[in-house]
């Protein structure tokens, strides 16, 4: 008997598992690695600029943050950190919930996690895009002058 005569094995064991095109576990796994790699640079750049590079940690105040947010580079930098890190963390929590919680408790936790993540993302993005430097307290003369001119 040659191999051509043998029928291909059937696969009855596959039926009970759902097959879907988009695999959240696979893309979650890839996302964790890609975002993790990017976040190393984003977070260390952020820490370096805020705590070491232009002055020291002592210059960190409202005016410093306002100055950063007026620069599109830092807006995009912080926006990327916000989205990448929040989804990275939320996906990590999701896998923990999937590993350790069961039944109704699991779906409650997953929903709570999802809603929290979306609320934080929306809030954070709103602050980043609509930030008004004149709303906060400051004794920075330059900022006071700019705000007074408006």
């Amino acid at each position: 008997m040659s191999t051509q005569n043998i029928a291909a094995p059937r696969s009855p064991y596959l039926s009970h598992r759902k097959r879907n095109r988009f695999n959240i576990e696979k893309w979650g796994w890839i996302y964790m690695r890609v975002s993790g790699f990017l976040l190393v640079f984003l977070i260390f750049g952020h820490l370096f600029y805020n705590l070491i590079f232009p002055g020291k940690v002592s210059i960190l105040d409202w005016a410093f943050v306002a100055g950063k947010f007026s620069d599109p580079l830092w807006m995009w930098w912080d926006g990327a950190m916000l989205w990448l890190a929040l989804i990275h963390g939320a996906n990590g929590m999701r896998t923990l919930v999937n590993d350790y919680a069961h039944g109704r408790f699991r779906s409650v936790l997953l929903w709570a996690l999802g809603i929290t993540t979306v609320v934080l993302l929306v809030l954070g993005t709103l602050v980043l895009t609509t930030f008004d430097p004149c709303l906060g307290p400051t004794d920075n003369a330059e900022l006071i002058a700019i705000c007074a001119a408006q």
């Binding site: 696969s11 598992r17 759902k18 097959r19 695999n23 576990e25 696979k26």
Partner: peptide, 17 residues
């Protein structure tokens, strides 16, 4: 490809921590 498809399942290799 068949086996990789089976292991690309939700309960497949991606659950490995």
């Amino acid at each position: 490809s068949v086996r990789l498809d089976i292991l690309n399942d939700k309960e497949g290799v991606w659950r490995c921590r």
